[in-house]
Write a protein that binds this DNA or RNA. Structure first.
Lengths: 209, 209
DNA sequence: TAGTGTGAATGGATTCACAGCC
DNA sequence: GGCTGTGAATCCATTCACACTA
């Protein structure tokens, strides 16, 4: 369920602010979701709450992490150290969520061998080292941050090297076998969705006067 | 419909490769969608295809752009020129999709007044100039690329300044009034979704032997 | 009383199946 | 023969309503 991650993020936030318990209504209100929806989502994985009380924030955080698989750390690799890749490498939010960027690859020979800004003990590797590194460091997730034209080739290389999941920032649809999980984020597509919905909103307003 | 943007991206790709017509089956196969799904989606907006032939790629691209509102250019602003913001500012893919980054804001006084790397004629502005700039340049979409702690304040400022849509990269849920459209992208959440689905896949494999 | 867990009902999205057109 | 557009059927997610519990 895609909402589970959002529940967890919100709950971690609430936990930092010292909240002990939370009701489905409170959690839902913070995320624009109905209380019934929250309860259905959580109940699907077991009995987490106490009638009359709500949910223990700390307990729920622990259980959600377990469900999402982030109660242990995942090793992650990145392909493509352009602007976006560099931003991802420097982002300090992954660590806290249970992900560790342990290897970075690029096709540009000018970058290979140099340290990755913002990452300790990681130097840029050549693409041909991919498979070796994946098995040596037990890497299961790969992030693609390369131009569209290179996307499919990199996806193929990741699949061959044995990763189980791919997060794809290249603005292209990459074909992967069904046993490999893929998520895609395309900035331009996101903006298009926005402009579409803004346009639709404007029409509704027009119709309403 | 969220798939519309993906259809458009794929069609633009096919157009560049010289394709004249495309069938719902071909288009669907490229995106892991059934042919019936493609036809339903497109038919919702009108009669675009010819039985026996398929769809004209060029015509369909034009019609989809019209539907998505990207047949004309949208002015866009960016708040936050950290690693991610800089990557977005330097990304050359927006222009081709009908979006132009015309203003960049940051709270860091050390950055204000300096040119934005990769953008012609754009210098970093202070937050207090937001509302003025939005109305002067007729900006309707805003991108948030600031730390989580600053997200809500920036969202509020954008709403007050009069933008119609917000693309939020801050890892926090921002409350906005219903007449403002919002899309959110959280890199860490994306990875969590992946790890969840990879875990689920593994269990299915286990069960199957 | 406040709030969970859950069957029943609803509604929206997806698939099926096919008539009609090129 | 190949392919679209679309009603009918199906599936799945969401909401409703409430029995039950701390």
């Amino acid at each position: 369920m895609r909402r589970l991650s959002l529940y967890l993020r919100q709950l971690e936030d609430m936990f930092r602010q010292g909240a002990k318990t939370v009701s489905s209504k409170q959690l839902g209100a913070a995320l624009n979701v109905t209380d019934a929806q929250v309860r259905k989502d959580l109940a699907y994985f077991g009995q987490f709450g106490s009638p009359g009380i709500g949910y223990s924030v700390e307990d729920l955080v622990r259980r959600l992490r377990r469900i999402l698989g982030t109660d242990s750390t995942w090793n992650v690799l990145l392909v493509g150290l352009g602007n976006l890749g560099a931003a991802l490498a420097a982002y300090r939010g992954f660590e806290r969520k249970g992900f560790r960027l342990v290897a970075v690859f690029d096709a540009d020979s000018g970058k290979i061998g140099k340290p990755v800004p913002g990452l300790e003990n990681v130097t840029v590797q050549a693409m041909h080292e991919l498979a070796d590194t994946v098995s040596r460091l037990d890497i299961r997730l790969g992030i693609i941050a390369v131009p569209a034209a290179a996307g499919q080739a990199v996806a193929d290389a990741l699949v061959t090297s044995g990763v189980s999941g791919i997060l794809n920032f290249a603005p292209v649809n990459c074909a992967v076998p069904p046993y490999v999980v893929q998520a895609s984020v395309d900035m331009a597509v996101q903006l298009e969705q926005l402009s579409f919905r803004v346009g639709a909103n404007a029409e509704i307003d027009d119709a309403a006067g």
